[in-house]
Simulated assay, not measured.
Amino acid sequence: MTNNLNLGDSNNQQANHVFVFLEIFAREGGIQSYVKDIFRAYLGLEAGYQAEVFLLRDNPDCLNPFECDRLKFNYFQNKSPQMGRVTMAGALFKYLLQKRPQRVFCGHIRLAVLIQTLCQPLGIPYTILTYGKEVWHPLTRREQRALAVAKDIWTISRYSRDQACAANRIEPHKVKMLPCAIDGDQFTPGAKSAELLIKYGLADSKVIMTVARLWSGDIYKGVDVTIRALPKILQAFPEVKYLVIGRGDDQPRLAQLAQDLGVSDRVVFAGFVPTEQLIAHYHLADAYIMPSQEGFGIVYLEAMACGIPVLSGDNDGSADPLQDGKVGWQVPHRDPEAVAAACIEILQGEDQRCHGQWLREQAIANFGQAALQRQLLSLLES
């Protein structure tokens, strides 16, 4: 176990806030990406905002671009998870007792009981950050109590709020929105890469694309539904190919489905693509198709920021990035006929929702880094 907390440093300015997370840098994922966006927004606020960050599973060797005078990180990774938790709890309690920060932000429901136990007796308000499925089912009584006692709860979408409230008897007014953000400087429109067109055999094709984990537990992503929609799509656009980016144990089933439907030559499984190469792959797409059930769906924003029209499910958190259908197509997520019909509309290109520059402007105006920073500031001051 290592940590860099130095309570004895008299030069340490009192932090306004404390953030406590399971992990940010030890692994990649939706929650980790979301937290990094929050840190970027936090550092964009005026200098008066300072915070101490406690990380249960990270260590100082992790690449951390956010370490600075205004965000100080404390690491508690330990070979014994229980010992790491006990050590972090002790250091956090000492910090809260001595420094009395204005508010504590609990970064995962699994830490909520600990945060309540430490903060409530000291009269320090705390906020619980939620993301998606981790709070969509009935939690333990102690976790529900921690949610009830919290000053407020932040989440990424209206759908995620509604699911959590229904499962855990949370008052909806207590839940505030802090949506995911898109980096408009990173995700930009661009020409199709000749090299990638050759690599995937996509020359002279209209390309529909999905970026998703292909795990058997993630069937809700809708890759199988899109494959089932292909025969009808091909009747209208015989040059269509379906580029699937991602990996997982469900790929053999999906490949067999494509073969059974006679469209295996139209489906390209690209496998895993690193983040730094993902933008060039978005540029290959004429439409981004993912009839899913998402807590939010950052991939839709990534596609729109690249000027690519999008299709999502009609009963999930994607209603927020798609602005209730204003900037994209929403269809019943397990309905191949609806997916095919909407996909044909997109490829015809006559709808305003197909206009790349307009799509990009909408995505960045509502979900860019500046929008996230404004929303974060509003929540911190409320």
Rank of each mutant, 00 (worst) to 15 (best):
L178G: 04
F21C: 06
F66W: 13
I289H: 11
R247A: 06
S80A: 04
S264E: 15
K133I: 06
L359G: 08
K199Y: 05
F21H: 14
E134C: 04
V299D: 00
V175G: 06
K94D: 15
N12S: 12
Q323V: 03
P238F: 03
K176M: 10
Q50A: 03
I124T: 00
R161I: 05
A148W: 02
S378R: 13
L7A: 03
G132F: 04
V339E: 14
Q323E: 12
Y300A: 04
S193L: 00
A341P: 04
F73S: 13
E171M: 13
E28H: 11
K232N: 09
E195P: 08
K133M: 09
L379T: 05
G8T: 08
Y75D: 08
E350K: 14
A89F: 00
G297L: 10
Q144L: 05
A340C: 06
Y95S: 08
P238R: 12
Q362N: 05
F21W: 12
F105L: 14
T210G: 08
V149C: 08
S318K: 06
L55P: 02
W329V: 13
A181C: 13
A194C: 08
H137S: 14
R85S: 15
I31T: 13
P231K: 03
A91G: 10
T155Y: 01
V225R: 04
L214N: 00
G123V: 00
Q32P: 10
D265Y: 00
F25C: 04
Q375T: 07
K206S: 11
D250C: 06
Q13N: 13
M88A: 09
I182K: 08
E195Y: 09
R141Y: 02
A47P: 00
Q277P: 12
G184H: 09
I31P: 02
S378E: 15
G271K: 04
P138M: 02
H173P: 02
G356L: 07
V240M: 02
G248Y: 01
M304P: 11
S157R: 05
L45Y: 03
P252C: 10
Y288N: 15
A363H: 05
A164E: 01
Q186F: 11
C165R: 01
R360E: 08
V225L: 01
L96V: 01
Y49A: 02
M209P: 08
F73V: 10
G84T: 09
R103H: 04
L243S: 06
P172S: 11
L22R: 10
K79D: 15
R110K: 13
M304W: 00
Q373E: 13
G356Y: 02
E46H: 07
V86G: 03
A365T: 12
A164S: 07
A285D: 15
T117H: 07
Q293T: 11
Q256D: 12
A371W: 02
S205G: 08
F25G: 01
F93A: 15
V331G: 14
N315W: 07
E337Y: 03
N4G: 14
T127S: 06
H173I: 09
A194I: 12
H17I: 11
V18Q: 06
K232H: 02
C180S: 12
P189I: 04
C354K: 05
Q116T: 06
F39Y: 12
I24G: 01
P252V: 12
Y200T: 11
E381L: 14
A371I: 07
